[in-house]
Design a protein around this nucleic acid. Sequence first.
DNA 1: TGTACATCAGTGAACGCGCGTTCACTGATGTAC
DNA 2: TGTACATCAGTGAACGCGCGTTCACTGATGTAC
Lengths: 178, 178
Amino acid sequence: MEKRYHHGDLRAALIEVGLRLLAERDVEGVSLREMAREVGVSATSVYRHFPDKAALMRALAREGLDRLAVAQQEAVSGKEGAASFAATGRAYVRFALANPAIFRLIFTSSAQLQATGEIEALRMLRANAAAASSGDAGPEQAENGALRAWSLVHGLAMLMLDGQLPADDRLIDKLIQG
Amino acid sequence: MEKRYHHGDLRAALIEVGLRLLAERDVEGVSLREMAREVGVSATSVYRHFPDKAALMRALAREGLDRLAVAQQEAVSGKEGAASFAATGRAYVRFALANPAIFRLIFTSSAQLQATGEIEALRMLRANAAAASSGDAGPEQAENGALRAWSLVHGLAMLMLDGQLPADDRLIDKLIQG
DNA sequence: TGTACATCAGTGAACGCGCGTTCACTGATGTAC
DNA sequence: TGTACATCAGTGAACGCGCGTTCACTGATGTAC
């Protein structure tokens, strides 16, 4: 028996299932066949919506990036300057800890995510980092400060994900705050 | 015809080939069978030296970690304090850029590398980072400064590897130096 | 110095595996008349 | 309102793939007598 999905429904269902699987296991452990199986559809039908597996994975990365952007936006609301950066940075690291595989997927595939708006989450972090370091002398110092802040937050996330540092909320606060 | 390796020779040859392959492609692209093929030996013979593929990959990570330690040691020679940290940090990032797959492998599998001495490279970076921030008030501030420095350097390496920042030597210097 | 033998690092064939992808197809949907 | 038809999202079977690993084996090495 054939299941009929309204336009876009199977696509959305595949992305939802994909993100759920990525919450449980690593990127390499997620196959196109399994995503189709979980949705309850034949593997073949995926090809009606994505040219190949890579395209589906890119869609997952894009959706993950959107969610990271939302998390940062929620965290930053009503804050300014240094407090704003700290909030964004904390949200960034916490998102990574809560969604390890998705966070990794975002960054390993984001070089291919070129379309407008897809890098919103990254743009926002950079903007906040720039605001945080705007007390510095010139615009170049501010830019350097922003990149340093982004690197700090990104490195913190990665080191905690890889078990090099304890994934401790208070440690995050200490390192980002002061 | 059977090839005879003196004790440890095939082991060393496999590690050498593994690192060479990792210089060309990603971790997932390196198979046990290919490493054996490259050495010129049957896949089966690998099991005389490693219980399974995971053990071989762990050996590759350990060797990579040693090389990272050496690179840092060479970079740091004769320097002190902040200059010492900057040198170590630069060496760390440059190693990552020169050996992307190995650098990633080191960190994704280093949670399992528990034996003494295996974390030498990491210990060294932490020590130098601590030295760099020893001007700070108390020991806790110094520790925080060290972790911040490590995060900064690690994040910089990862962002450059993932194409988020240009892999530019001058940018490395600017962000680590100042 | 020569022989017997244990050790153990190699061998090729075979296993089952799940994968991504292609194929020719079917049948429900929604539109045109 | 009913019928004809094009569209196209589904289907299951099949493909070739290289993988990690197991098996029973072979034959070179080096030691004990």
